[in-house]
Nucleic acid binder design. Structure first.
Length: 565
RNA sequence: UGGGGUGUGGCCAAGCGGUAAGGCAUCGGCCUUUGGAGCCGAGAUUCGGAGGUUCGAAUCCUCCCGCCCCAGCCA
């Protein structure tokens, strides 16, 4: 991976690891893991975790495992494990041969459970789910012990074996840790270790009908893999005592350290798996890879690069306080990356025809155009210029407001890489809509400059009518119309805040001929407008582009300021 | 009102007893054949609040306040 893409920020986890290394806590080893549950697609929040875990391994010369936390067959699926692997790889990380599954450890976990039963530290409880909840007590009141809590190890062993063999229906019994029903930490009030689930698992099939709970399984999986630092999100902080309890009471190879950090929140979007699933399932969006979603598949289709996402993950930092990061930062990271790399091209999104009356009919000139001013090595290309061209509708105003430095009647602008033109006449249709501009050009200005060095109003991009390729362009905007749906005064369902303008499809766009051949995944800067990528739907006959992010637009700011006045 | 966390400019975030890094955003200016990019500059007398310790506190102590998480046989 590139090293110069960002400057590492110190954070408390790095400090802990550096200290552990100094004290030789794990014999100089650093081993992390990224443990997704394959029950949905990965999103930008997961990217933060992936970058953290794999990044730590890279920085401290350790390793990072990919482990699927697949302990609940009722929600998980192979489609998700495949998408997760694709996304992690795409982000630029390599787990080498260390692809693990919690389900690989089911036999081992079962043995550990037996051991706890024999030690009198776990018991089979016949209480119903409702009863268990009742017996758990409340935040302020202690719980009550289950009447089945003091069964003998022999009886528990026999019962647990029968649970495993499928004798009991779902929900009829659970295996619980025997800890303390009066603990102020509810996670220690005899947490459930195993539940009965007659469900087919995507990997183990029907080999099991009892499945371990996350809390019981996670620490052991970490230990079996030799994990040193088990990094998770804040909500697991209360679970740490049980994580430690499990490891302390079992003959495990090592005792990893659980460290919690604050998950990423981004404004103007949704980040919960539940909400993303709902948007996909109920077709509010086109799928998991809809470019409006913060899923990695969506961001990829939108045109985000792994480099930009990694830079973003590094920039937002890692801390323990809950925060809401501004979408503008994510966009900034993309622009910064693409500015260096994207080839500049001409594309007119909302065409306005311009006839250059003093330019010879039938004549075509090949203008030299630089591909990327940020990268001289990117070279140049030829752009066909002729008597009739398209410019952007926004680049002309019949009655220009103050500070509008573009074309208007009588004014002169530069056509990038071509000539200066002056607007002589505005042609309108019966409804009074502007349909064409008649302009004249200055033959002296070829290439975009003149000997007298006179200033022009501005510089516009353009495409020759005869050479233009028709394209569809999809413009994306914020998924939500409010920064934080949960913070709105009246608590409506988040779908009420979906931005109706999050997708705008432009059909009649005109792009320079070189773009016809661009295949899916290629990205460009459409001069003066933004960064765009070729969508998966694109074909040579019908090119389709996605707007990944706009360019910073100071005219838009001025205009807005003028309107606000 | 039990337990666990957390409060540094609009948004993130360094800092760990020696007198407030950095990024995003914002606002100025320069520059410019992208109103892009780039460059320069501005902004917290102040670190949730109040006390205290100290020559000296965002950093230590005390009390108070706010916000988040926990009562799944989800992860």
């Amino acid at each position: 991976m590139s090293n110069a893409e960002f400057t590492p920020t110190p954070n408390f986890i790095k400090a802990i690891i550096a200290n552990d290394l100094e004290t030789n806590k794990y014999g100089g080893r650093v081993h992390t893991r990224f443990p997704p549950e394959p029950n949905g697609y990965l999103h930008i929040g997961h990217a933060k975790s992936i970058c953290l875990n794999f990044g730590l391994a890279l920085e401290f010369k350790g390793r990072c495992n990919l482990r699927f936390d697949d302990t609940n067959p009722s929600k998980e699926d192979v489609e998700y494990v495949e998408s997760i692997k694709t996304d992690v790889r795409w982000l630029g990380f390599d787990w080498e041969d260390r692809e693990y599954y919690a389900s690989d450890y089911f036999p081992q976990l079962y043995e550990f459970a037996l051991r706890l039963i024999r030690k009198g530290k776990a018991y089979v409880d016949d209480l119903s789910a409702e009863k268990i909840r009742e017996y758990r007590g409340t935040l302020t009141e202690p719980g009550k012990e289950s009447p089945y809590r003091n069964r003998s190890p022999e009886e528990n062993l026999a019962l647990f074996e029968r649970m495993r063999s499928g004798e009991f229906p779902d929900g009829s019994r659970v295996l619980r840790a025997k800890i303390d029903m009066a603990s102020p930490n509810l996670n220690l009030r005899d947490p459930v270790m195993y539940r009965i689930l007659h469900a087919e698992h995507h990997r183990t099939g029907n080999a099991w009908c009892i499945y371990p709970m996350y809390d019981f399984a996670h620490g052991q999986c970490d230990s079996i893999e030799g994990i040193t630092h088990s990094i998770c999100t804040l909500e697991f902080e209360d679970h740490r005592p049980f994580y430690d309890w499990v490891l302390d009471n079992l003959p495990v190879p090592c005792h990893p350290q659980q460290i919690e950090f604050a998950r990423l929140n981004l404004n103007y979007t949704v980040m919960s798996k539940r909400k993303l699933l709902e948007l996909v399932d109920k077709a509010y969006v086109r799928g998991w890879d809809d470019p409006r979603l913060p899923t990695l598949a969506g961001l990829r289709r939108r045109g985000f690069t792994p480099e930009a996402i990694r830079a973003f993950a590094e920039t937002v930092g890692v801390a323990k306080r809950e925060s809401m990061v501004d979408m503008a930062l994510l966009e900034h990271c993309l622009r910064e990356d693409l500015n260096r790399r994207a080839q500049r091209v001409m594309a007119v999104l909302r065409p306005l025809k311009v006839v250059i009356t003093n330019y010879p009919e039938g004549r075509v000139e090949e203008m030299d155009a630089e591909n990327n001013p940020e990268d001289p090595g990117a070279g140049t290309r030829k752009l066909p210029f002729s008597r009739e061209i398209f410019i952007e509708q926004d680049d002309f105003r019949e009655d220009p407001p103050r500070k509008f430095f573009r074309l208007s009647p009588g004014r002169e602008i530069r056509l990038k890489h071509a000539y200066y033109i002056r607007c002589d006449e505005v042609v309108k249709d019966a409804q009074g809509r502007i349909v064409e501009l008649r302009c004249s050009y200055d033959p002296e200005s070829r290439g975009g400059g003149t000997r007298d060095n006179r200033k022009v109003q501005g510089t516009s991009h353009w495409v020759s009518v005869a050479h233009a390729v028709n394209a569809e362009v999809r413009l994306y905007d914020k998924l939500l119309s409010v920064p934080d749906a949960a913070a709105e005064k009246e608590e409506k369902d988040f779908k009420e805040y979906l931005n109706p303008g999050s997708l705008e499809i432009l059909k009649g766009c005109k792009v320079e001929p070189s773009l016809a051949a661009a295949g899916p995944g290629r990205f460009f800067q459409f001069l003066r407008q933004g960064y765009f990528c070729v969508d998966a739907d694109s074909t040579p006959e019908k090119p389709v582009f996605n707007r990944s992010v706009t360019l910073r637009d100071s005219w838009a700011k001025i205009e807005k300021a003028q309107q606000d006045k």
